[in-house]
């Protein structure tokens, strides 16, 4: 019986590379800007530039291509589906026709365009999560959001919540597996019956899981208080983020790339 053995959460791949060493803030901002551009652009040329940019980046990061492709797997169905919908529903010059179903050249080009757009969006997020450890990611988010602290936005608290959530995913998965096994030893059956029955069968897993999670949360809160945790105010970081030479170089490259894409789109 395999439950979660094949599931990997947080697809970070540790490598010693210039991309991994980059400041997480600059990587988050790059991803955000790139995603906006991917959404807004209507030109193949910008896709080419963005695609080239990330290909070079992933090559530099030394992450094997199979990890990147694995991230694409779950979204593949969606990409193919959108391609087909565009292929058959866009009016234009007909390639061939069977009854009411017809395929058009315009549909083909539009469908390809959307498929590439989805592909690039996933590539962008994969690039970010593959090369940035969850801790660095939350650190970066905290620092970026701290700008909104002036309007009372609890940036530190949100980052702390994210860190804790990430930290406890493997623990809770282990616990789920243990509870499943314990209930199976009591004759529970999770594999037969219709959907409704299967959902009902989940109760003996979910309730103990929640109770244990609440206990854990309570204990963690006490442990944090015992070490005088009082939220973000005046709290320093073990690894303070600072822009280094590498970040500056990357910043120049990304600025140039973005400027190029904007010029292509405007002209």
């Amino acid at each position: 019986m395999k439950f979660f053995r094949n599931l990997t959460i947080g697809q970070y791949v540790h490598k010693d590379s210039p991309i991994h060493k980059l400041d997480p803030r600059i990587k988050i901002l790059t991803s955000l800007l790139m995603m906006i551009l991917i959404f807004l652009t209507e030109s193949w040329w910008s896709f080419l530039i963005i695609g080239f940019f990330f290909t070079v980046n992933i090559w530099l990061s030394k992450v094997q291509i199979k990890y990147v492709l694995r991230g694409l797997k779950p979204i593949l169905v969606l990409i193919i589906l959108t391609l087909f919908i565009h292929l058959f529903t866009t009016p234009g010059e007909v390639i061939f026709q069977i009854g009411v179903i017809r395929m058009t050249w315009e549909g083909l080009s539009r469908g390809m365009f959307i498929a590439v757009r989805l592909f690039l969006l996933i590539l962008t997020t994969s690039w970010l999560t593959l090369t940035t450890s969850p801790i660095a990611l939350t650190d970066g988010i905290e620092r970026l959001l701290s700008f909104f602290k002036i309007i009372g936005f609890p940036a530190h608290e949100i980052a702390m919540m994210m860190t804790i959530a990430l930290r406890f995913i493997p623990t809770l998965m282990e616990e789920t597996e243990k509870i499943i096994k314990a209930q199976m030893s009591r004759g529970a059956d999770f594999e037969s019956g219709n959907i409704l029955k299967r959902m009902k069968n989940m109760i003996p897993i979910i309730i103990p899981l929640f109770i244990n999670a609440f206990h854990r949360a309570d204990e963690l809160a006490i442990a944090m208080e015992a070490r005088c945790y009082r939220g973000g105010e005046g709290r320093t970081h073990y690894r303070a983020l600072s822009f280094k030479y590498l970040d500056k170089v990357f910043f120049m490259i990304i600025s140039f790339t973005i400027a190029l894409i904007i010029i292509i789109n405007v002209v």
Binding site: K178, S185, R186, G187, P204, I207, I211
Partner: peptide
């Protein structure tokens, strides 16, 4: 097989979920 061989894990109290002890014990049978 599980009818013949009863197994309890470490800290079995972590698997309790029913509202009454009767229902809890009746879950297996």
């Amino acid at each position: 097989i599980r009818k013949k061989i009863g197994l309890t894990f470490q800290y079995p109290e972590n698997q309790l979920f029913e509202e009454s002890i009767y229902k809890e014990i009746a879950f297996g049978p």
